[in-house]
Design a protein around this nucleic acid. Sequence first.
DNA 1: TAGATTGTTAATCGATTAACAATC
DNA 2: TAGATTGTTAATCGATTAACAATC
Lengths: 216, 216
Amino acid sequence: MEKEKKISNAVVRRLPKYYRYLGDMLKNKIIKTSSKELSEMTGFSASQIRQDLNNFGGFGQQGFGYDVKNLCEEIGKIIGTDKKYNIIIVGAGNIGQAIANYTGFYENGYEVRAIFDKNPKMIGLSIKNNVIVDVDDMDEYLANNEIDMAVICTPKMVCQNIADRLVANGIKGIWNFAPTDINVPKDVALENVHLNESLFSLTYYYNQNLNNTDEN
Amino acid sequence: MEKEKKISNAVVRRLPKYYRYLGDMLKNKIIKTSSKELSEMTGFSASQIRQDLNNFGGFGQQGFGYDVKNLCEEIGKIIGTDKKYNIIIVGAGNIGQAIANYTGFYENGYEVRAIFDKNPKMIGLSIKNNVIVDVDDMDEYLANNEIDMAVICTPKMVCQNIADRLVANGIKGIWNFAPTDINVPKDVALENVHLNESLFSLTYYYNQNLNNTDEN
DNA sequence: TAGATTGTTAATCGATTAACAATC
DNA sequence: TAGATTGTTAATCGATTAACAATC
């Protein structure tokens, strides 16, 4: 078995950006590109881009550059966008509804299979092709359906409980929008979207800029 | 004038998490804490926490620890949550609506002053206290109202145009939810929430875990 | 062939961790 | 006073950048 070098989180976070720009180029029928060109688009240094790509193999051709279609496909394979994923959404409040309508799922092979909520007023309503189901029925649903990932859009009070139940039912990927940290076993992939932390970071830099301008 | 040491982005990203846990402790009437305790809560090392805090000043007491209330207030001041902010939302689609209903704004002193959209079917409808206004009237609105930050929730085709108009009208903070990169002058704070990139990172780690499990 | 650009090693830079003196 | 924990310096670690040989 090949010993795989551990890919740093910093690299992983850049892959989707490469993938997006390459997809754009592909749509515009651009055949070749280079680390220099990708650098201008992404803002990452050309050297860093070459380093990043060479973590996964030599996708380029010396003296020429990279074939856009090939590189895009290869990065897609690394990320895993070449596969299909069944997902569920837990919590049909503001964020849950927005996520249920999120076109990025359908454009990239993710299919929303079910939406759960505990509010009786929500249960039975439809979002896109899905009827909202009582969250009490979630465990049974998961036991009987092949679901890959779940999106947590519940209030923070219940999100750890939901996460525990998801994990107990074999879910191995969680996209968490609840504004708190949850604990999952290390074989479960967890991605947090903490809007509050994002807004506060923005606020810090906003004030930083104001202060710097004042000083002049 | 004191020469301010540049705070690294990594530190800035950790501040909101300290702030959140300290707020939780405050709510639970906990008086004192320590870098060790904060380490257990946040997952950051105690050493790193002390380093982070000492970028901004000595908030602790040797041999004792940190006063929760004081430290929480100090970090609030550093982030800027002690101030009020007027914001507008541009784009009243799925994400825009979710953001308009986002309780984090009201809980932290951010006030949504206006919501803009270009869809005639949306214009005139209300979200919370705000009537959705024609985006053609945005520039005039900004010229006549004191707005601090804007949230961009438009399709990616128009988001650079929106950003340019926001900047032209003096907006210095932009929270961008459109799935693309936008360019703003460096005195404008920009925070991107790229859901597609977040989902792809999750997908990468999801597959990584599956592969590692397979190998055993 | 000459020019261009990758792949890869080495150098640099910055962030994290370790250690411990200061001191409450 | 003894114990605890900060503030801060030094050591380590890891990521980014620079440089250049390989080669198309």
